[in-house]
Each structure stands twice: as C-alpha cells, then as structure tokens.
C-alpha cells in the first residue's frame, strides 16, 4: 500500500472508530426517553451549567494563557523550563487526581481563607468552573505558545522602531496575528471543559440543578442502569457540543478572515 492510501486508511479508521461509537447509541435509542430528557428541567439546568461553566472556564483560561504563552515564547526567564514542563501536568495527572488536589488545597489554611473571604469553591458552581479551568489551562497555553512562536519577532521590532511601546505592539501586531491560535485555544479549551468530568465531580459534587453538569448527569444515569436515559443525555451533549463548535468556528472564522 502506498503512502497516500495508507494515510487515507488511517484517517478513515478514525471516522470508523468515532462513527461506530456514535452509531452504537442507536441500539439503545428510545424516542420517548429522548423526549423526556429534552423536556426535563434538570437536563436543561445541566445544559445551562455545562455551557456556562465551559464558556467561563475557557475564557478565563485563554485570558491567562495569552500573556503566559507570550512570555514563554519570547522571554528567557528563571523557571521558564519548569513552567513549560508543568503545562503537561493536567494531562499526566488524571482529572480525578487533579480534582482531589484542589479539594486538598481547599483543606489547607490558605484554601480555607480563600473560601471564607473570597469565594466558596467546594460543591459550588465556582468549583465547577475552577475544576474545568485548571484542566484546560495547560492546553490553552500550549496552543497559544505555538501560535506566538509563529509570529516573527521582527514584526514587533519594526513596530517598536515605528514608535510602538511593547504593549501597543502586542495588542496591534502580535495578538491580531495570533488570532487563529486564540480561536483554536478557545475552541479546544471550551470543548475540553464541556466534556470535563473527573475534576468537576471531585470538587463540585453531583448536586442536581447546582453542580450537575451534563457529563455528571450522564454518569449518574449510567450508575442507575438507565441506559435509555444515558443515551438521551449523550445525544444532548453531543448535539450541543457539535452545534456550539460549529457556530464558534463560523463566528470566529469570519472574524479571522476579516
């Protein structure tokens, strides 16, 4: 088999794998269960919570990742290697362990003080956002760093000789040129946050209408052996995910091309 055929075969096998998984849902698809799930206030609460938390977590992650990635891309500083290595931390450590670490932190005096004086994280919406934010931050930084690396430093230098301060050059030259990376980082972070389960359930628990996100709801339905309900929620999750990604890509894509 030549290279062209073998690589296309690999691409098709990806389609078969994920397509097969989606198709298998059809075995337990029950129209009444889907209708019931679609009408359930609890489902819509989980949808609102998931989309809201994922959007907030992705926005916060990109907002912090953009300057951090720029520093990693441009400036040599003490600890740079360490930061670069730690970006992989959320991937190496399982989400459940990451959530456990957050819980442990909030049991320290510093964590206790934060919860008491600033914001309650454990078993709250803020906890959902925090768990997702911590999970997706590393990926956002990694994607944005690659994007900043691709912007020639020379352009910033020219901008500075034309009178731009470093901040002005960053906002008018670097950031607009890295906009595809910004878009990619946001979409990736948002999608990852939407499907986040392990850290969320560990930090925020499973309180219906308060901290129950769609992945948590799927898990709870499955735990109670309700396969039809599980399939219905998975379909809701998949539909929302794909629809949101499509709309985001269209909107941001138009902004990038403009």
């Amino acid at each position: 088999m030549n290279l062209r055929r073998s690589t296309i075969a690999a691409a098709i096998s990806v389609l078969i794998l994920y397509g097969g998984l989606l198709a298998s849902l059809g075995c337990f698809l029950d129209g009444a269960a889907v209708w019931q799930a679609a009408r359930s206030e609890r489902t819509w609460s989980a949808v609102r919570l998931s989309v809201g938390a994922a959007t907030l977590a992705a926005t916060l992650a990109v907002a912090l990742a953009a300057p951090a990635a720029y520093a990693l891309s441009r400036y040599p500083f003490r600890g740079r290697e360490l930061v670069d290595t730690l970006l992989e931390f959320p991937i190496i450590v399982s989400p459940a362990a990451l959530g456990a670490m957050l819980l442990i932190f909030f049991n320290t005096s510093a964590g206790d003080w934060i919860q008491e004086h600033l914001l309650q994280f454990v078993f709250s919406f803020a906890g959902v956002v925090l768990a997702q934010f911590v999970t997706v931050l590393g990926v956002a930084v990694r994607v944005l760093k690659a994007s900043f690396d691709a912007v020639p430093i020379e352009l910033e230098t020219v901008a500075r000789t034309l009178g731009a301060t470093p901040r002005y050059a960053w906002f008018t030259i670097t950031l607009p040129l890295a906009r595809r990376g910004l878009m990619a980082a946001f979409i990736l972070a948002w999608a990852k946050a939407l499907g986040e389960f392990g850290a969320t359930i560990t930090v925020a628990g499973t309180m219906p209408m308060r901290t129950e996100t769609l992945p948590v709801a799927v898990f709870l339905r499955l735990a109670s052996a309700d396969l039809e309900g599980t399939v219905a929620l998975i379909l809701v999750l998949v539909t929302i995910g794909f629809a949101a990604l499509y709309v985001t890509r269209r909107l941001l894509g138009r902004a990038v091309d403009a």
């Binding site: 020639p152 230098t157 000789t161």
Partner: peptide
C-alpha cells in the same frame, strides 16, 4: 527603549504587517 531611539528600520524581510 527601541521606540525612543528615533530609528527607521527596514529588515531583510521588510517586516510589513500582513
């Protein structure tokens, strides 16, 4: 700082903002 040096700079790749 660079921006206060009063320089005009044309690099090899020109550095036009794309």
């Amino acid at each position: 700082p660079i921006e206060q040096r009063g320089l005009g700079y044309v690099p090899q790749q020109l550095g036009l903002f794309p």
